[in-house]
Design a protein around this nucleic acid. Sequence first.
DNA 1: GCCACAATACCCACATCTAGGGAATCTGGG
DNA 2: CCCAGATTCCCTAGATGTGGGTATTGTGGC
Lengths: 212, 212
Amino acid sequence: MKQRLIIADPLELIAEGVRSWLREEKDLEVAYHVRSGVELVELLRRRAADLVLLEVSLPKMDGIDTMRAVHRDFPGQKVLAFSALSDIEYVNSMLIEGAHGYLVKESTREEFLRAVRVTLAGGRYLSATAQHSVEQGYSYTEKDPDGEYVGLTSREREIIRMVAQERTNGEIAAALFISEDTVKSHRKNLMTKLNVRSTAGLVKYALDRRWA
Amino acid sequence: MKQRLIIADPLELIAEGVRSWLREEKDLEVAYHVRSGVELVELLRRRAADLVLLEVSLPKMDGIDTMRAVHRDFPGQKVLAFSALSDIEYVNSMLIEGAHGYLVKESTREEFLRAVRVTLAGGRYLSATAQHSVEQGYSYTEKDPDGEYVGLTSREREIIRMVAQERTNGEIAAALFISEDTVKSHRKNLMTKLNVRSTAGLVKYALDRRWA
DNA sequence: GCCACAATACCCACATCTAGGGAATCTGGG
DNA sequence: CCCAGATTCCCTAGATGTGGGTATTGTGGC
């Protein structure tokens, strides 16, 4: 009779914490724990669950990509984003990709349970800091006034990852068999899309998503 | 009769997970949970514990600084570093500052319990990945052949934080009322000490420690 | 008092990145 | 087929960072 949750998070300890928080709840239980986005998609093919708790920072295929895949392949699946990060990029991206809410890991047990129940009931739960991020809006609203989500192409992600790995444009160009000018173009586009003004901003973006 | 642990970690969920892992252990319990290094030091002034589990990534005063403070003010205190990070810088730094072991958060309950008990018994526990990092040694061994720990001064940390915040040398200079040349000097020293060759490396270092 | 070191500042030379612009090719969807 | 977008490449020019130096001042420890 219990509502079944899937925890998608690289750490067993996090799953254990959630299990512990749910131990005395009669209506909720952790049915599965997966450690990556790939595992999650594979599991959903075989098993159903009422709610997925999805960490945004996952190795390789990050939470945003995973969210997109889940939303595409399992349109009705309820997903609550669950992360330590509350920056606008992640919150907005997850919501746009179909997450039903965004819960920060700093939350207490009470907030956690409320968020899970609200989401299961079909509502939208946002932690205060996530809500704040959404209200602030993208910091680069000037450059993108319609507020539309600006995604990165796979090539751009490839480039930004290598930038975060301390490689120069020349090295990236050599590794990808393209000209240095092309790499520069990609960096230019990346900086515009992400509204950062230096290498530091690109590195931060990539590292927050664990791409490097 | 139980051995008492203090969990120093920003997330309540982590503390809950540890409590859950210890629930059926007759000889271990979580006595306190603190969310920052400052809180930890304050608590230790008032209460004793057999072991501190110390996260390396803490806001403001990071785990390394906290470790140093604890080691200085409470020399006999047993501390087990407990983090998701296993890079050589953190592992070595924590051990040099006096940690009795280094446990990665990816560990299973079994490894966790083993690490805690080994440390309480006076032994040194290192997770496999941490052990690996130590064996690899600093990547900049050539530049620092005696393998001595290279710490950053407070001014250098101030600089590296601002670099990670996407500020240019000129902006940092203006903010700190020093010349741009001085900022360059600090960056130069930072890059040598940390053995990185670009802004990206500095940003990574700062972000891993949650300084930005 | 001396030594080590942090913090400050400057020199030169070179490497790399940033910021505009434009444009050709290819691919997938409507 | 046509269009939008991704990817590729080029140009100019200036800003910024990197990598060697050297040097002065102040502070704290021995």
